[in-house]
Structure formats: C-alpha cells, structure tokens
C-alpha cells in the first residue's frame, strides 16, 4: 500500500511540475489535476508492483525530519567535492593518489543503498564502481587509507547515520 501511494505522489508531482505553466493559463485547473491523478494512479497500478522499491521506507516523524535535512548535508558535500576537483584539475602537478577500496554498509534496503551509492559518487574524490553483497567498491582519487575499516569510517559514516533512519 505504502509503495503505491508513494509512486502515485511522485508521478503526480512530476506531472504538476511539467504542466505548471499550462495550469496557470488554462481555465479548467481542476480538470487538469484530476486527469493527472487518474493517469498516475493507473500507471502506479500497472507498473509499481514489479519492484516494491518504497515498501520499507520509514515515515516516522524523525525519518521525515531527516529526509528534509538530508539534501542540505548532500549539497554541502557536493560543493566541497567541486572545490576539491577544481583544486586538483587546476594545479599543474595533478595531485592524485587513486585506489579502489572496499567499504562495508549496514543498509539493507535496495533504495537506501542506491541513495548511498549516488551520494558517494557526488562527494569529494569518491566514485562507486561496484556493489557486491554488503560491500561497495569505491574509486578514491586520494586514498588516505586502504584498510576496509578506516575507509568505511571516512567515506560511508557521514551519510549512513542519516540514511539508516530514513531507509533502514
């Protein structure tokens, strides 16, 4: 049930963003929104049952607060990542020290792992190469430590504290 409701809300949100400029000028606003509700419900019923991606997402108050707070953590990391890339690309000697290291994650749900992998890719100097079981393989542009434990501590912890509350 939760899975279907979330899919309908996401589809309807996309529809409203896409048709916002038409909605402002048209006379039958209610009709357009109703059409969006009908079509997104139909699409969700047809396709959302294959992969129950949002089944285990938590909707407790704490999880919702973290869900709102997570984009800020992410944007800060993205900004630092870009300044870091700028420093490396512009310096004449190319200060890189790359390695592919293994890190462990405690997240169980596929969606949580997806968000974790994407966040790691967009943060300073790290790129997710592969996921096998509960270990992620990360290409690290400036490998400070090649040990699994300390690499996990440095790369994954910052995001995992938030994602564990939201996705489990």
């Amino acid at each position: 049930m939760r899975n279907w409701v979330i899919v309908v809300i996401l589809l309807l949100g996309t529809w409203l963003l896409l048709s916002a400029d038409v909605l402002m000028s048209t006379t039958s606003v209610a009709g357009s929104i109703a059409a969006g509700v009908v079509v997104s419900t139909a699409v969700a019923l047809l396709f959302a049952g294959r992969k129950m991606l949002y089944k285990n997402i938590r909707l407790t108050p704490k999880a919702l607060v973290y869900l709102l707070f997570y984009p800020l953590v992410f944007l800060k990391a993205l900004l630092i990542a870009n300044l870091d890339v700028a420093r490396r690309v512009l310096s004449p000697s190319l200060p890189i020290n790359p390695a592919i290291v293994e890190v462990k994650t405690n997240l169980i749900s596929p969606l949580g792992r997806l968000v974790l992998a994407n966040s790691i890719t967009l943060t300073p100097g790290t790129l997710t190469v592969d996921i096998q079981g509960d270990s992620l393989y990360i290409h690290w542009i400036d490998a400070v430590s090649t040990d699994v434990q300390s690499a996990t501590e440095k790369i994954v912890r910052g995001f995992e504290t938030y994602l564990e509350v939201i996705y489990g």
């Binding site: 890339v85 690309v89 790129l127």
Partner: peptide, 26 residues
C-alpha cells in the same frame, strides 16, 4: 569548463569520470 578540463587532463578513465561527473553536476 573545469569538468571539461578535468576530462582532458586526468591520466586514466576512472579519474576522468570523477572530474566529469562532479563538476558538471554542480
């Protein structure tokens, strides 16, 4: 522009992907 420079300057494919994705996203 930084992302494009990174794609040209970095020595191997993985480092090029690193520079390419992050800088072009922001």
């Amino acid at each position: 522009l930084l992302g494009a420079l990174g794609v040209v300057r970095m020595p191997d494919l993985f480092n090029r992907i690193q520079a390419g994705t992050k800088a072009t996203t922001l």
